[in-house]
């Protein structure tokens, strides 16, 4: 698979369609994101992040692309290595007007291996723009339903206990591919007292959850990165689901339409049945 991707990227570079390729590189056994600019660089350590297990080293490629675009001084197009989740994140960021002109990013898609898809219970383990790998079927994640079976009091107790472990590292925010603000509400002292540990419970986590409504593309990076093992994905997945139920909006789909929270007035997707 990796050779096929490499060849594809090389041809993109040779034809001048991209001026660089945002991918992953194995540097002395550690996989890091890297902007490949020459064929030689590609030959030297290009990686798909398959370390101990397939796709074990994942990065929020969409977010890295966002920074790349924001910091580049010209309009040159870049290639980007995307999995299904990365593509959903790019679609979502595009709806929020964050990726500049269309065509700025050339997606080089890879399908996730079955083990990876299973590990992350991925809803769509392959991108639409697909170059290499074999498509495997989606895996269901039922964590939301499991929490919803609890009654309200035990649900509150459950989340309070989870949130109480928070060390406020902001890892969930920093890894999140669809978090793009220059200043973050989580750091606004008037809203959430800074310096407290654990942070104000549940204020801190619910504030972030609010920002994930109509936005979370269910990549599971937050849960993966959380040093306190808080099941954040379940929380964000739930708020995204509420928006889907209310407005029929599914995050990460390609298209131009706005997130329903950014639309004034009745949404056509909001049917009487949901009222």
């Amino acid at each position: 698979m990796i050779e096929k991707v490499k060849e594809h990227v090389k041809s993109l570079m040779a034809s001048g369609k991209i001026s660089g390729f945002l991918g992953l590189k194995n540097e002395n056994g550690v996989v890091i994101p890297f902007l490949f600019q020459t064929e030689e660089e590609l030959e030297n350590g290009f990686s798909l992040g398959d370390t101990e297990t397939p796709g074990a080293a994942r990065y929020p490629m969409a977010k890295l692309a966002l920074h790349l675009i924001q910091n580049s001084t010209d309009d040159s197009p870049y290639g980007i290595l995307v999995r299904g989740c990365d593509e959903r994140a790019l679609n979502e960021l595009s709806r929020w007007n964050q990726l500049g002109s269309p065509g700025r990013l050339v997606k080089v898609g890879i399908a996730c291996q079955e083990e990876l898809a299973k590990n992350h219970e991925c809803r769509k383990p392959f991108p639409d723009e697909f170059v290499a790998g074999e498509k495997v079927s989606p895996e269901a994640n039922n964590s939301v339903q499991e929490v919803l079976t609890k009654d309200l009091d035990s649900r509150l107790a459950y989340w309070s206990a989870e949130f109480d472990r928070c060390i406020k590292c902001y890892g969930c925010r920093d890894i999140c591919p669809v978090c793009f603000c220059n200043v973050c509400t989580l750091e606004e002292d008037a809203l959430i007292k800074t310096g407290d540990l654990p942070p104000e419970n549940p204020m801190f986590h619910l504030t972030r959850a609010i920002h994930m409504a109509g936005r979370c593309i269910d990549c599971n990076l937050c849960t993966e990165v959380c040093p306190a093992h808080i099941p954040l994905r379940t929380l964000y997945k739930r708020v995204a689901e509420i928006i889907t139920d209310e407005f029929g909006y599914i995050t990460g789909e390609p298209g131009e339409g706005k997130s329903p929270l950014n639309i004034l007035g009745p949404d056509p997707g909001h049917t009487a049945a949901n009222d």
Partner: peptide
């Protein structure tokens, strides 16, 4: 917005 409501509950 939701932040004001959260704040009140908090």
């Amino acid at each position: 917005g939701p932040h004001q409501i959260l704040k009140a509950f908090q």
